[in-house]
């Protein structure tokens, strides 16, 4: 479904020179697959996601989705960002209905559909609230609903739970998994949390830093539907977490320079 081949990205440095952010990434993602990209901060994993989204152009290589080359953003790939990126001037309803209105739905139809989705993410009654009046977890639910609203085949999730407290984070992981079990969208999920990646994914792509390259691709052969409390006792889960943690372990500071 998503074919990433030979993608590189270099940035201009301030004051001259270039910085190779990601280097020669090849990756194929099948339809309905949940793939996480795992790596330390600064490894370019978000940049890779932005390139798939069409928000950032690659310096080399290409991305295609369902056989068509990516040249820009489109409603077949819906992003969810760590920063929520909700429109502050719109209410919860207005945010969720945005993509539906852009798709040409009438205000009434868009509002009806959006209201239903808001209930799905557990925010019934908050339709007229502004984002600033919501907690972080609620904001991210709105952002997810806004993206789900226009029915993208692919979800691009950029550390979506990274700005949330530990408790909210676990809850939203569970809810995301439930949503995914229901309609099996293709998901590309960027994170630096090993347990989150193992818990959610079919495959975990481990990236190195400077330049960002694929170090390993690990199949997560854990049965679904998954339950967190069961997994924690599962030796296979524990093994995967430990292996991945070792893989992304950073060399100490003084060795890097």
């Amino acid at each position: 479904m998503i074919a990433i081949s030979g993608v590189t990205k270099t940035f201009q440095r301030r004051g001259g020179g270039t910085h190779l952010a990601i280097d020669a990434i090849d990756l194929d993602i099948a339809e309905g697959e949940f793939v996480s990209i795992l790596g330390p901060s600064g490894c370019g994993k978000s940049t890779l996601l932005y390139i798939v989204g069409g928000f950032v152009a690659p310096s080399g290589g290409s991305v295609s989705v369902s056989g068509r080359a990516v040249t820009g953003p489109g409603p077949d790939r819906g992003p969810v960002f760590q920063e929520f990126a909700l429109f502050p001037w719109k209410t919860v309803l207005g945010n969720v209905a945005y993509g539906l209105r852009e798709a040409g739905l009438s205000r009434r139809d868009a509002d009806a559909k959006a209201t239903a989705l808001i209930a799905t993410v557990g925010l019934k009654g908050y339709e007229t609230f502004y984002p600033k009046e919501l907690s972080g977890g609620m904001k991210q639910r709105v952002a997810i609903a806004r993206t789900l609203a226009y029915g993208p085949a692919i979800l691009l999730m950029d550390e979506p739970f990274g700005a949330l407290d530990a408790h909210t984070r676990l809850r939203l992981q569970n809810e995301l998994l439930q949503l995914w079990e229901r309609d099996r969208k293709t998901v590309l999920f960027v994170t630096h949390a090993v347990e989150e990646a193992v818990f959610l994914s079919d495959r975990v792509v481990v990236m190195t830093r400077q330049p960002g390259r694929i170090k390993a691709v690990v199949d997560i052969d854990l049965p679904r539907p998954r339950r967190r409390d069961e997994l924690l006792l599962n030796p296979r889960y524990q093994r995967l977490v430990i292996d991945l943690e070792r893989m992304i372990e950073d060399p100490p500071e003084e060795m890097r320079a």
């Binding site: 932005y50 989204g53 069409g54 928000f55 820009g72 953003p73 489109g74 409603p75 790939r77 819906g78 992003p79 960002f81 920063e83 990126a85 429109f87 502050p88 001037w89 945005y98 993509g99 852009e102 798709a103 952002a143 806004r146 993206t147 226009y150 993208p152």
Partner: peptide
């Protein structure tokens, strides 16, 4: 920029983001 990206992904044209995102923001 992620506000603009969110709108672009939802189907807003590049020019459309000027009025639908940048101006209100």
């Amino acid at each position: 920029p992620k506000l603009v990206w969110s709108a672009r992904a939802a189907g807003t044209s590049r020019g459309g983001t000027l009025f639908k995102v940048i101006l209100p923001a």
